[in-house]
Design a protein around this nucleic acid. Structure first.
Ligand SMILES: [Mn+2]
Ligand SMILES: [Mn+2]
Ligand SMILES: [Zn+2]
Ligand SMILES: [Zn+2]
Lengths: 138, 138
DNA sequence: TGAACTATTGTAAAAACTTGCAATAAGGAT
DNA sequence: ATCCTTATTGCAAGTTTTTACAATAGTTCA
């Protein structure tokens, strides 16, 4: 499945345009496979499309996150990282060594339902980050 | 209880120094009472101590957070805000209108224990932010 | 009290991120 | 295929955050 054939219809269905900038950024995220900072996305994307500019990177990543094509994670020190959105998951990060663990959404289900019923908010389940100390660092 | 008499011993006990910059920043956070961005802290703190500089604000806020005197919250778009640490709590923020709700730690207790036993990590319970849509915005 | 040690701060400059606006180009209509 | 509309991008300048290093000022100890 090529990036264009996969993401172009999604964008079109939402009423947005298919641009080479967006395709390049999505391609970079898909190929990298993990969490990337805007700077990392910029550096990688510039290799494929040297005319890309920083404002476009920041705007596009935010745009893609708002529309569910990528996931934003607020790790550590308030820096944002992005990744292609493949299923709901969360993260557990060691404050000391940075080692990070992926957590399924399942164990959070009950909590989410409980919070929804007690607050009236409708939660979206994306990408919570928990902090702690890993076994090695305790 | 004055700021100096309250926080100076805490800093000292941790092996750090009492400085007028730290006292001013803590005083600002205590007086304001809610979440403040570094810029807001800077503006308020400068009124009391005009010689304060931005690097000091950023460094001090991070320092105080690392040592448990203030709490950092990673709200919305990856911006960090700070507040005096008064008891564990979490936040629930509406993605649409920004309306925010404070959540007790109690409902998360069970989840935390479950994650701890399944991952081996020792979680610290500070300041998770959940997102969703408030009743009015759904 | 005063010197010594060094944690902490200010300075200057860089890097990361944002903003407003004019130029471009994607998608729909003719 | 060409024109039109306007969403999207690039540009230029601003703001925020970080960094490296020299100057300052808490604290300890004589
Ligand atoms: Mn993730
Ligand atoms: Mn809070
Ligand atoms: Zn660790
Ligand atoms: Zn709302």
């Amino acid at each position: 499945m090529t990036c264009v054939s996969e993401y172009s219809p999604q964008l079109h269905a939402l009423g947005f345009r298919t641009t080479s900038q967006r395709m390049t950024i999505l391609h970079v995220l898909r190929h990298a496979g993990g969490h990337l900072s805007p700077k990392q996305v910029y550096d990688l994307a510039c290799r494929e499309m040297p005319s890309l500019t920083e404002p476009t990177i920041y705007r596009t990543l935010e745009f893609l996150a708002e529309n569910g094509l990528v996931l934003a994670a607020h790790v550590g020190n308030g820096k944002i990282v992005y990744e292609l959105s493949n299923g709901n998951h969360h993260h557990l990060i060691c404050r000391n060594c940075g080692r990070s663990l992926e957590i399924e959404h399942a164990p959070l289900q009950k909590l989410y339902r409980q919070l929804e019923s007690s607050t009236g908010y409708k939660l979206d389940s994306s990408h919570v980050t928990f902090f702690g100390l890993c076994p090695g660092c305790q």
